[in-house]
Every structure is written in C-alpha cells, then in structure tokens.
C-alpha cells in the first residue's frame, strides 16, 4: 500500500504537467508562511517549478517529490531574503571567519560564550517560527556558505555528495560548514533566543 503511494508520487514527479495540482498549494503555503507576501510567494513557487524542470534528470528517487521541491524552494526563499535585506548580507567568506574567530580570545578561550538555550521542541508553533528565523539567518551568509549548510544540514547530503555537488575538497567542506554553523548558532542565539550579548563572565 505504502509502496504504491510512493510509486505513484515518483511517477507524478516525472510528469511536470501534474506539479501545479499536486504540489502547488503545499509549496505556496510553505513560501507564504516565510515571505508573508502572496505575490512573492507565487513567484517563488514558479521559480521552484522552473528550477525543478531544469534539474529533473538529477532527481534522486530516494526522496519524495515534496521533499525535493521543498528543498529547492528553501534555496529560493534564502535567495529572496538575501536580495531583500542586502544590508545584512556578509559578502565574502573571509569576513565571516573574522566574525566567527571573534567569538574567541587569542588564548583560544571563549570570548562570547554560548548562552543557555531554553528549548522546547514539542511546540509545533515554535518549529514553524524556527524555520523562518533559520532561513533569515542563512540569508546573511555568503551564498556558498549558505548553500553548503543547506545541502548538508537541511537536505542531509553526505560529505562526499556535498563535495561533489559544490566542487570542493572534504577539508574545505569542514571549514565552510564550521563557519556557517558557528555563525548561524550565534545568529539564532541573538534573534531566536534573544541573547544579544552571549553569556558574560
């Protein structure tokens, strides 16, 4: 029964003329919950479909059509935030590493110590809001760093797949992911957990 359903969805994803009816509302709701503007959400759905059409031969059968299309949409949403809030975007990777190095003293001890996070994973409302905040924080990063984070942490690509997809070495991927994670951790701490100063001595 379940196999049949998966099979049916696989067949659907290979027929782009069924996409609007099958995935349109879902993607629209997902986008609208993030960008709030229906016109923008519609545009993002269209861009997602067109990007999916171009990448259809790369579709991996291990993920569902929903998962695949939503992953593309998340990239589009981050691109949208990046363009909309240009003033917040860190342009180059070097500047990010200056920021993340600044979390430490020269001695290697913490300068801005990680604060205590009050986490309640059971709250579904929080989960939805969390995704909004995370995508906005991602939009502050240079495109390549945000992309590396999304492929690895959101879409769950292996290091090997990530390196292949981004044409980077494994060592390079660890450095990029470190910068992205460390920056995002701090961004979440400030905007989601409301601890602008970190924990002081």
């Amino acid at each position: 029964m379940r196999m049949n359903r998966i099979k049916a969805e696989e067949d659907d994803i290979l027929k782009p003329d069924t996409w609007v009816d099958r995935y349109g509302d879902y993607l629209f709701r997902f986008a609208l919950a993030r960008v709030k503007d229906p016109g923008v959400a519609e545009d993002l759905v269209q861009e997602t479909f067109l990007a999916a059409l171009r990448g259809l031969q790369n579709f991996k059968r291990r993920s569902s059509g929903h998962t695949w299309l939503t992953a593309i949409l998340k990239h589009k949403i981050v691109d949208y935030f990046r363009k909309k809030h240009r003033e917040l975007v860190i342009e180059d990777i070097e500047t990010v590493s200056e920021t993340t190095d600044g979390f430490f003293k020269n001695s290697g001890n913490w300068k801005i110590r990680p604060g205590k996070w009050d986490v309640n994973p059971a709250k579904i409302f929080e989960q939805k809001e969390f995704m909004n905040v995370l995508l906005k924080c991602l939009a502050q990063l240079p495109e390549r760093l945000a992309q590396a984070f999304m492929l690895r942490e959101m879409e769950g690509l292996s290091t090997e797949e990530l390196c292949k997809s981004m044409q980077i070495s494994a060592t390079n991927s660890w450095v990029m992911l470190y910068r992205a994670r460390t920056y995002l951790r701090r961004c979440l701490e400030i905007t989601w957990f409301n601890k602008p100063t970190g924990e002081t001595e």
Binding site: F28, R29, A33, P38, E42, I124, K128, M131, L134, G156
Partner: peptide, 19 residues
C-alpha cells in the same frame, strides 16, 4: 531542527491555496 522541523504550525493554514 533544520532536518526534521514540521513546516507548518497550525492546521488553519492548510486552507490557504493558490488562487
């Protein structure tokens, strides 16, 4: 959270559809 977050909070939003 990045991998497994449910994208939607409350049910009412499922009534939103593409025009």
């Amino acid at each position: 959270m990045a991998r497994y977050t449910q994208p939607f909070g409350n049910k009412s939003e499922t009534s939103v559809t593409l025009p």
